[in-house]
């Protein structure tokens, strides 16, 4: 199987879907002539022209609104937010428009858009450029939210998202674009509503998505050396949130850890933990442990920034403590 980076896997997904369906078009800031801030859209304007790869002004509300209005008239737009940090000026379009239009108009229309949002921290970009907002999106009925962590899932979920008839928030992490892995050629579709065990284990269930999935998998390897068998569940499908593999895993391990880059309060881990308590309370041997970003505006200083985001060591320490093995 070909080895691709997440960046190239996403690029391949976009290219294939644009070749397959003439109604698919891309829009965003500097995605065309400039090839994209993170080069995910590299070469696509050259291949498909300016109509299908639309460079927009720096105006996030019009980017999302244009996508919605075009989708309502039959197209399948894929909008790129240069980074997720800028989506805050477009949140009205995301929530009040994209997510609500179908329901508030009694099912009279659908809004098949994809909004790609590169995000996450760890690059010394400080408070305004280091956000993770998937929990905001996942709070909203009407949106689907996915956050793949591997190249194969990046491709397969983006293709599925483009074909989906709902607004899909497609969460990418700036720190993983260069991560490589096997990616099936051609028609590779990954469902938007299925989470998956990425590494089997018996002692503790670790739930993580996007970049933290890679951190969790890395930690699981080390834990193995320390005599702890960790099962890692990829939480790539955040809304609808597929809890089935988590519950099944927790019934076996009796222990659960959640890992996310975003802030802890009201976060992804909070929701996963609540669902575990609701569905598998009696199977737990200990409370669910939550690992998350420190609750500060992200600091610039390298040492401080490192403290602000979860790392492999946090997962190892937490797992050992949870299992009483420290």
């Amino acid at each position: 199987m070909p080895i691709l980076s997440i960046r190239d896997a996403l690029n391949q997904a976009l290219r294939e879907e644009m070749q397959r369906d003439p109604n698919v078009f891309l829009l965003g800031e500097d995605i065309g002539l400039y090839d994209g801030s993170f080069k995910v859209t590299r070469g696509l304007m050259k291949e498909f022209g300016e109509k299908r790869v639309l460079d927009t002004p720096i105006a996030e509300e019009i980017i999302v609104g244009t996508a919605i209005g075009a989708a309502m008239a039959g197209l399948r737009p894929v909008a790129e937010m240069m980074t997720v940090n800028f989506i805050m000026v477009a949140m009205d379009q995301v929530v009040n428009a994209a997510a609500h239009i179908r329901y508030m108009f009694g099912g009279g229309i659908k809004v098949p858009i994809v909004i790609r949002t590169p995000g996450g921290g760890g690059h010394q970009l400080a408070a305004q450029h280091s956000h993770s907002h998937e929990n905001w999106f996942a709070h909203v009925p009407g949106l689907k939210v996915v956050a793949p962590g591997t190249p194969a899932d990046a491709k397969g979920m983006l293709k599925s998202a483009i074909r989906d008839d709902n607004p899909v928030m497609f969460v990418e992490n700036e720190g993983t674009y260069a991560v490589k892995g096997e990616v099936p050629d051609g028609e590779h579709l990954v469902p938007l509503d299925k989470n998956e065990v990425k590494r089997p284990g018996d002692d503790v269930t670790i739930c993580a998505h996007s970049r933290m999935l890679l951190v969790a998998l890395d930690a699981a390897k080390d834990l193995e050396q320390l005599g702890i068998s960790a099962e890692v569940v990829d939480m790539r499908a955040l809304r609808p949130l597929d809890m089935a593999p988590v519950i099944e895993s927790v019934r076996k391990t009796g222990h659960a850890i959640t890992v996310e880059e975003g802030w802890r309060s009201f976060g992804v881990g909070a929701e996963i933990a609540a669902r575990i308590y609701e569905e598998a309370f009696d199977d737990l041997d200990a409370p669910v442990a939550r690992i998350a970003g420190a609750e500060v505006p992200t600091p610039y200083n390298k040492r401080l920034e490192k403290l602000a985001f979860p790392a492999k060591a946090d997962v190892i320490v937490t797992a050992r403590a949870l299992l009483g093995k420290n």
Binding site: L54, E61, I62, V64, G65, T66, A67, I68, G69, A70, A71, M72, A73, G74, L75, P77, Q93, A97
Partner: peptide, 9 residues
Amino acid sequence: PLACGTGYA
């Protein structure tokens, strides 16, 4: 903005 999107379509 939605009107613009439909105009684009």
